[in-house]
Amino acid sequence: MAAALQAKLQSEQRFTADVAHELRTPLTGLHLAAELLPPGRPAEMVQDRIRAMSRLTDDLLAISRLDLEISRLDEKAERADAEVQQLGPPAEPAVRATGLAAEVRVERDTRVETDRRRLQRVLGNLVAHAHQHGRPPVLLTVDGLVSTVRDHGGGYPGHLLDHGPQRFRSRSGSGRRTGHGTGHGLGLTIAAGQARVLGATLRLSNAPDGGAVAELDLTPPVPGPRRAPSGGGGGS
């Protein structure tokens, strides 16, 4: 069973990489063709869909790169390039990079050895996912080693809380395209993969008064026997 699961995971990873690379060429052609359309609403709609497809392709390429990094991580027990960082300062740039609104609160700052670029990518993806699948206001809080992104929408669906991000899962358990866990949702996949490379823990929950809560915990792992690699890097 373990061998079958590993084979399934590897097949899924190869599929992700192949799809991403195969999409690049036709997307380039579509972009050039769209530039020839006369100005107007139809041209804007086509260009908007091309941009959405380009973002999806970029996300797929990011996931395929993460798959490779995680497999190396499992094989060699290596971590991301890390330096001692304050956790408060990267929060504001991470939000600005998304172009979206989120209140940033630094309740308790601290220093930890981590990769600032990856940290900002995780926080940015969580903020973007909160806007895409939840409702404002979106709040990013840094409290010691835990950074939390919370929105005020309908919360995460049960399958996401039970099983974590699973790539290509496109609908909530009810079959309706509403709320967290709908759409391609690859932002959470990338956030979960980047968190794993950082050696961090990404926890998903729902607030008692409504809204989805994503906690990135950078508490260093307790040294101990190395566990066997497990499949990861799904996303929704």
Rank of each mutant, 00 (worst) to 15 (best):
216 L>V: 10
224 G>N: 14
224 G>F: 15
232 G>W: 00
232 G>Y: 00
207 A>Q: 09
205 S>A: 13
227 R>H: 08
231 G>L: 02
233 G>F: 00
227 R>Y: 01
218 L>F: 09
217 D>Q: 06
220 P>W: 08
210 G>S: 12
218 L>C: 04
211 G>H: 12
220 P>R: 14
210 G>T: 10
224 G>Q: 07
220 P>D: 06
199 G>H: 00
218 L>S: 06
209 D>K: 15
230 S>L: 05
199 G>N: 01
224 G>E: 09
207 A>S: 06
205 S>D: 06
233 G>S: 11
200 A>F: 12
202 L>A: 07
211 G>R: 11
204 L>C: 07
221 P>N: 11
219 T>D: 06
201 T>A: 02
201 T>I: 01
212 A>S: 12
225 P>T: 10
201 T>W: 00
230 S>F: 00
212 A>Q: 05
207 A>R: 11
228 A>D: 10
233 G>M: 01
224 G>Y: 14
225 P>R: 15
232 G>I: 00
220 P>C: 06
212 A>E: 03
216 L>I: 03
214 A>E: 05
200 A>Q: 04
219 T>K: 05
232 G>H: 05
202 L>V: 03
223 P>H: 14
216 L>G: 09
225 P>S: 13
209 D>E: 04
213 V>H: 08
226 R>T: 10
218 L>Q: 08
227 R>D: 01
233 G>V: 03
209 D>H: 12
211 G>Q: 10
223 P>K: 15
230 S>A: 04
213 V>Q: 11
205 S>F: 13
222 V>Q: 09
200 A>E: 12
218 L>N: 05
200 A>P: 07
227 R>G: 02
221 P>H: 02
220 P>L: 08
221 P>S: 05
216 L>D: 14
230 S>I: 06
209 D>Y: 13
203 R>W: 03
218 L>H: 09
206 N>C: 13
205 S>I: 08
228 A>G: 13
215 E>T: 05
200 A>D: 07
232 G>V: 01
204 L>T: 09
206 N>P: 04
215 E>C: 07
232 G>K: 00
208 P>L: 05
